[in-house]
Design a binder for these strands. Structure first.
Length: 258
DNA sequence: ATGCCTGTCTGGGACAGA
């Protein structure tokens, strides 16, 4: 079974790229982020025609997450994280499908830092950590996939050699400590586990020629609990998707479970 | 040193993204 995550950066303008990738890659489950569209304008029919059931949590203009499943309807378990009824951002969606529990995550970017946006990022992260602790202890197989907006380390696997991002919210010690705290619950970063030494970037900024220079970041992650990591067989990034016409600035990342 | 692109909402320019 193949499970993928793809920050589409606007599902309306990205629909041709999304449908093309679904046809090629045929993931059994696909977590999408940055829909940038309202619930009412989600392209449900086009995705259904591609052979996928879907649930989505949209927001006009910004954010937005979805879970797609091949030949199945994801059973929604939760939209939004617990413990902040005033949080209006559409950044978390959780479903049961094909025998696993899947969370689609769009963690706040947090720039500029320091500042209120960085505070929101860390607060949202703490809510995710609290919720993930409960998921990890459940009897189910769980995959938390999405755009975490965290570059885990300075290793070349995670980021090209640069100082350009040194003040960026994605690299700060507090951001990395929160990601480490999540992993310390027992979650496995699937791509890191299977490809510890290769460059596994999932994001390249649109400008400064960063795609052509392969000046990328690894910020889209698939985290597996112990019951799921026992099934992990393959992991990868569909890098070529980033090089196409009118691409997202992210490439899809994926795992294969036995 | 810097949103230098891109998408969205809107109808031109601001805002957000990383």
């Amino acid at each position: 079974m193949k499970i993928a995550t793809f920050n589409v950066n606007g599902i309306t303008s990205r629909l041709p790229r999304l449908l093309e990738w679904l046809e090629e890659s045929r993931p059994d489950i696909a977590c999408l982020q940055e829909l940038k569209t309202s619930d009412a304008t989600f392209p449900e029919l086009a995705i259904k025609a591609a052979g996928y059931g879907a649930i989505w949590h949209g927001q006009k203009g910004f954010n937005g997450v979805a879970i797609l499943a091949k030949d199945a309807d994801p059973q929604e378990r939760r939209r939004g994280l617990p413990n902040d009824p005033d949080d209006t951002h559409s950044r978390y969606l959780e479903a049961s499908v094909h025998g696993v529990v899947v969370g689609s995550i769009y963690l706040p970017n947090g720039n500029p830092q320091p500042g209120p946006k960085f505070d929101y990022k860390l607060a949202w992260f703490k809510r995710l950590i609290d919720h993930a602790a409960q998921l990890f202890e459940s009897h189910e197989q769980v995959v938390l996939a999405g755009d975490y907006n965290v570059v885990p380390t300075d290793a070349v696997r995670d980021i090209y050699a640069t100082r350009s991002y040194k003040d960026d919210a994605l690299l700060q010690p507090e951001t990395r400590a929160a990601y480490r705290q999540l992993l310390d619950q027992g979650w496995t970063d699937a791509i890191c586990k299977l490809h510890p030494d290769a460059t596994m970037y999932t994001y390249w900024d649109y400008f400064r020629n960063r795609w052509a220079r392969d000046a990328g970041l690894r910020i889209d992650h698939l985290l597996l609990n112990d019951k799921t990591v026992a099934r992990l067989k393959e992991a990868g990034v569909d890098k070529s998707v980033r090089g196409r016409e009118k691409p997202s600035d992210h490439a899809p990342a994926w795992i294969v479970l036995q």
